[in-house]
């Protein structure tokens, strides 16, 4: 039998990457075994391939080249699907484990809440990377086969931005998940957040700008305050090279930020990937009861 004296020095109270990695691997395995994962990955892959195929030959979108048309279609698809995927996965993660009691099982081990959180986050983020890769792999294959592969670097950049968007939505979903022990309530809230970010955000900004004569600067920064819009702006610069297509707000951004525009957009997208997850981690680690 072990004695207390033998065991006490063996554990560090600091977060251990080894434990985060073990939990992440379990989460990834759970995700891969889930039918929802394959449904998401399959749907995204098929839709991306179909859109790429439709967008390339004979497209009416004359402003961009072959690659641009394909990328524009993909960005539109990503704006809808990826936020929903990340939000729902994140929302169900902590709340689902708390509801089932599995979180109590995990935290009866010498594992801190911080390790449990980041292990779950990392596992799901890798699962989302696989889903994004499936979609962009399928689209890239179709685009490449039809001769649209001249802008491969831009294509890869949009793929990376897609994953970053997925991770930011995962963080928002997990933040939602820290507010409730019920997976159903977390899921419902996540769907509402998705609607707000994807549809209401766009319509709301447009409506507010018309109703209140919002200055173009406010319009631009309001767009950055929405991670889905921030992704769209960062992706647009990838395949069109500018934000002219956005009208006055795009022109303002180019005039005001100049060469730094790209950096600001990428930094904003990256911040969205980090801040919600960090807030969720702090909330989960400080929550009193499981």
């Amino acid at each position: 039998m072990s004695t207390a004296d033998q065991l006490v020095p063996a554990v560090s109270e600091r977060p251990e990457p080894r434990l985060i990695s073990i939990i992440a691997r379990k989460e990834l395995r759970d995700a891969i075994r889930s039918k929802w994962f394959w449904l998401w990955a399959g749907s995204f892959g098929v839709l991306a391939a179909v859109l790429a195929n439709i967008a390339l030959p004979g497209s009416q979108v004359a402003e961009f080249g072959n690659f641009g048309r394909s990328a524009a279609s993909l960005v539109a698809l990503v704006q809808i699907i990826i936020p929903l995927m990340g939000l729902t996965l994140g929302a169900q993660s902590l709340a689902g484990q708390r509801e089932s009691g599995a979180m109590r099982f995990l935290l009866s081990h010498p594992v801190s809440r911080t390790e449990a959180f980041w292990g779950t986050f990392a596992g799901l983020a890798i699962a989302l990377l696989a889903t994004s890769a499936a979609g962009f792999g399928a689209a890239g294959l179709v685009t490449g086969l039809q001769g649209g592969g001249a802008s491969a670097a831009s294509f890869v950049r949009i793929a990376v931005l897609t994953w970053v968007l997925a991770v930011s939505m995962l963080g928002v979903g997990m933040l939602v998940s820290t507010f409730t022990n019920r997976a159903g309530a977390a899921l419902g809230t996540a769907v509402f957040v998705w609607l707000a970010l994807t549809f209401l955000g766009d319509i709301g900004i447009m409506g507010t700008s018309v109703a209140t004569d919002l200055p173009v600067s406010a319009l631009f920064f309001a767009a950055l305050a929405n991670p889905v819009e921030a992704f769209r702006l960062a992706s647009l610069t990838a395949f069109s090279g500018s934000l002219d297509v956005l009208g006055p707000a795009g022109t303002y951004a180019i005039d005001r930020l100049g060469d730094k525009l790209d950096l600001v957009l990428l930094a904003t997208t990256a911040l969205w990937a980090v801040v919600p997850a960090a807030l969720a981690s702090i909330r989960f680690s400080r929550s009193k009861d499981l």
């Binding site: 072990s2 207390a4 065991l7 006490v8 063996a10 554990v11 560090s12 109270e13 009691g101 109590r104 099982f105 935290l107 009866s108 081990h109 010498p110 594992v111 801190s112």
Partner: peptide
């Protein structure tokens, strides 16, 4: 908390 749980086996 981790050091404490290291010493405990738990059946819920």
């Amino acid at each position: 908390p981790k050091g404490t749980r290291q010493m405990i086996g738990y059946v819920a």
